[in-house]
Design a protein around this nucleic acid. Structure first.
Length: 822
DNA sequence: ATCGTCGATTTTTTT
DNA sequence: AATCGACGAT
């Protein structure tokens, strides 16, 4: 049974590339596959072409909101439905796990069960999967640890200290980023050292740090984030037979967000799309690997077909080695490339797009691309110049509430900012205004100290070589093993050529105090017995992750110590650990066949955007970087100031300001209906207040697109409303007197008293103040008002208040600066 | 070994 | 503002 006849749209595909083993599976009933198939419904001509095109290489230049996810999923679904490919022959790379999950979900929606078996994941997840499978060839153990950036920094910090390199200006931060950049270029210590200028003592020292770092990782059987990609590339280059397995398997490779791939990732894609030489292919056939149907006339297995989707205008990761060169030179790298442009935007109003186009148009050196929408102009963009960060946050909170009253769900709104530090003021105000919100990313759950502690116990069981994890838990919770003892154990291990873990077991002969020795041995025994629980040889069968974690928590007393503490923060920490236990239970349920290492891998590779819960009815707060790929009905872009966007740190970098502009562009294009731009005249930083200037990018938006509720000009002009003049903060002057800035900003002054500008930073506790509808209250900032309604329970009780001059607001009763009057 | 205090340093973005 | 490291007292 041959299928080529079912493929009206694939003249370029050789029929031999079609899988032959068709009967094993109940594929989708060979439904009608013409233009009337639901796969092609509602697509514009360019999208349709992108879904249907068949050939070795396809570049889809997809502007923001042009429906690329839809195109990608339908393309994948089309390949499978038409039986050009088995699910297992598809490898789709996305930027985040969440994007991967969404894509998998949508393909499943189109195909049902037939979608099982595809690899849809991030670069990092795919590489871990490959490296664990091929650990033996790669010279790794299957249970290798994955170091996150914090682990990397700690390791480097210790090396720097040991080498006294801090006196030469080395910091963990700059060393880590330099090593990361090198690894992204596929350099290792040796290749770097070969070209280094060894007469420069700085260079010599750096090489030494790099060398020791590499050695420590190897000794701990650990890989850092960058290694995951690089080692996979090295594996493929060193072992053509291993590479051939994957080249044979993945016939269709799709890469999303291609503009943000770095060199190592580019190299990986190249390796995966190379053909398998005839000789090797024949060998594989001899080993029963069934490649005959894939071989061409010369006996080779041709390279996989490659589809990449990207938009140079949204390249925002150059700082970590991404190069949009990969996209601009794609046609040269992959000859015979078909290029398709998607320019019609289905997301935003024309006003928002016009602003976006105007901004990005200031970047030279780009392929001209103009987004357009058939959806109408929509509302104007709203601008607001606040006096300070809190004032700005209050503006956001008020507008969020106003939108919500008009019927917009909280989950359809998002607040973006350049730096994580900006969340503080926003959170303070949103809590007080009782706006349900969620910070996406930031200090991630898995990066909290107590969670890392608990995970370190698991890692110590999974990978006994991992000294970092061992040292972390050695005295956590406190068991009287101090730094002196730790050092002794370390040197004992080193002089005897044994692992740190073994040194712990043998610590009896070290002549330490009986108490300390007892503590060390107890921990070693705990870990050993835990390891026994997970041993596949265990007659009872290996325990599951949550049982193991519970056992370790009980045995170590980690949770009990936090529970017993009278520090209020420890209570939160204990809750976090219990949340982790709950997560292990979920994991067991959802992945009954997965083990400890699988759990730890998943945990290591979660991205900021991954913990975004679409179902939660909350406003989302996130950085502009995290926002990439997402969209919301209403978007608040905050902190549009010089020094913040573009960020101070980017000024020196070549291409910095252009990248910051793209970041702004990304932020703008996330909005469907409503866009708010806000800035503050003064911003608190490093504990004191600085004067800020409006971002240069603001002037790039045509003035008639923005409706300034309070423009930068007004904000300090003497005529500002009474209350504002009164509220101006020390240091707040001098903002509008922007000598030298082409002032197209201050149009139509429309003073509104709707927003109070001053917010006390003071945290109050009203105890059990009770309010009832009808009560009159006085608010420090908003003045007098009447309580309409009280909702919520306990500490979360919320008063809905109609203020006499400041409008309607919701207040968290417990902490609002209010008192009952009358 | 642990705890408290002082002072330095910090914040660009992230898989 | 808040965290981290160094140092000294217990």
């Amino acid at each position: 049974m041959t299928l080529s006849s079912d493929l009206p749209n694939t003249p370029a595909t050789r029929s031999s590339a079609t899988p032959i083993i068709l009967d094993g599976r109940a594929g989708p009933d060979a439904g009608p596959d013409g233009p009337q198939s639901p796969l092609f419904d509602g697509l514009n001509p360019q999208q349709l072409e992108a879904v249907k095109y068949r050939g070795p290489a396809l570049l889809i230049v997809a502007g923001a909101g042009s429906g690329k996810t839809s195109v990608l999923t339908r393309r994948v679904a089309g390949l499978i439905e038409s039986r050009e490919a088995w699910p297992s022959q598809i490898l789709a790379i996305t930027f985040t796990n969440k994007a991967a999950a969404e894509m998998r979900e949508r393909v499943r929606g189109l195909l049902g069960q037939a979608s099982d078996g595809m690899w849809i994941s991030t670069f990092h997840s795919s590489c871990v999967r490959i490296l664990r499978r091929e650990a033996e060839s790669a010279g790794l153990s299957t249970n290798f640890s994955i170091y996150d950036s914090a682990d990397t920094k700690v390791t480097i910090k210790r090396i720097i200290k040991q080498l006294d390199a801090d006196t030469m200006g080395f910091t963990p931060g700059n060393v880590a980023s330099k090593i990361s950049k090198l690894k992204n270029e596929l350099a290792d210590v040796d290749s770097y050292a070969r070209n280094a200028n060894m007469s420069d003592p700085q260079e010599v020292m750096f090489v030494e740090i790099f060398r020791q770092y590499t050695r420590r990782l190897r000794e701990a059987s650990a890989l850092d984030f960058d290694d995951l990609i690089g080692e996979t590339v090295f594996l493929f280059r060193a072992f053509p037979k291993v590479a051939a397995l994957y080249r044979r398997r993945f016939r269709h490779i799709l890469v999303d967000e291609y503009q943000d791939t770095n060199h190592a990732q580019y190299a990986l894609v190249r390796e995966l799309t190379r053909p398998v030489e005839a000789e090797l292919a024949d060998d594989m056939e001899d080993q029963g690997l069934h490649v005959k149907n894939l071989q061409d006339a010369t006996g080779r297995i041709p390279g996989a077909s490659l589809t990449v989707v990207g938009d140079s205008d949204q390249s925002i990761y150059a700082f970590r080695g991404a190069s949009s060169r990969n996209i601009t030179e794609f046609e040269r790298d992959f000859p015979g490339t078909k290029v398709i442009l998607l320019e019609q935007n289905y997301r935003s109003t024309q006003n928002i797009l016009s602003a976006a186009n105007a901004v990005i148009g200031n970047n030279f050196d780009r392929r001209e691309k103009r987004l357009w929408s058939a959806g109408g102009d929509g509302e104007k963009i709203v601008g607001y110049t606040a006096y300070n960060g809190h004032d700005e946050a209050q503006f956001v909170a008020d507008e969020v509430e106003a939108l919500h009253r008009k019927g917009m769900a909280y989950r359809d709104m998002a607040v973006f900012y350049r730096t994580n530090a900006q969340t503080r003021a926003l959170e303070e105000i949103l809590v007080r205004a009782a706006v349900p919100y969620r910070v996406v990313g930031g200090t991630k759950f898995y990066e909290r100290a107590e969670i890392k502690d608990a995970l370190a116990y698991l890692i110590a069981v999974a990978n006994p070589q991992d000294e970092l994890a061992l040292r972390r838990i050695l005295n956590t919770p406190k068991r009287g093993i101090g730094p002196a003892t730790e050092t002794q154990l370390g040197s004992f291990a080193e002089t005897n050529g044994i692992s740190f873990r073994q040194a712990m077991r043998d610590s009896g002969g070290l002549g330490l105090g009986p108490k300390v020795t007892g503590a060390i041995l107890k921990l070693a025994t705990l870990l050993d017995s835990a390891a026994l629980m997970m041993d596949p040889q265990n007659p009872a069968g290996p325990a599951n992750v949550s049982d193991l974690l519970t056992y370790l928590l009980d045995g170590s007393g980690l949770l009990a110590v936090l529970r017993g503490s009278r520090d209020a923060q420890d209570e939160v920490r204990a809750e976090n650990i219990e949340e982790l236990v709950a997560q292990t239970k979920d994991f067991n349920r959802e992945n009954p066949d997965a083990g400890l290492v699988d759990f730890l891998t998943q945990v290591s590779l979660v991205a900021a955007a991954d913990d975004l819960d679409d179902a939660s009815g909350t406003v989302s707060l996130m950085t502009l970087h995290t926002a990439k790929g997402l969209e919301y009905e209403a978007v608040f872009l905050t902190g549009i100031e010089e020094g913040l966007l573009p960020h101070q740190m980017s000024a020196g970098e070549p291409g910095g300001p252009a990248e910051e502009r793209r970041l702004f562009y990304v932020g703008i294009t996330r909005a469907r209906q409503r866009l708010y731009l806000s800035l503050a005249m003064t911003r608190a930083q490093f504990g004191d207040v600085n004067v800020a200037m409006p971002s240069r990018y603001l002037q790039e938006i045509p003035a008639d697109l923005i409706d300034w509720k309070q423009s930068p000009g007004m904000a300090n002009s003497r005529g500002g409303t009474q209350s504002r003049a009164l509220n101006a903060r020390p240091g707040g002057g001098g903002f509008g007197s922007r000598s030298g800035t082409p002032g197209q900003l201050p149009p139509a002054p429309k003073p509104k008293t709707e927003w109070a500008n001053r917010v006390t930073a003071q945290v109050r506790d009203n105890g059990d103040l009770t309010l009832n509808p009808g009560d009159r209250i006085r608010h420090v900032d908003f003045g007098d008002g009447r309580v309409n309604q009280v909702t919520g329970e306990g500490t979360k009780r919320i008063a809905h208040v109609q203020f006499d001059t400041s409008g309607a607001k919701k207040l968290l009763i417990k902490i609002a600066p209010i008192e009952k009057i009358e």
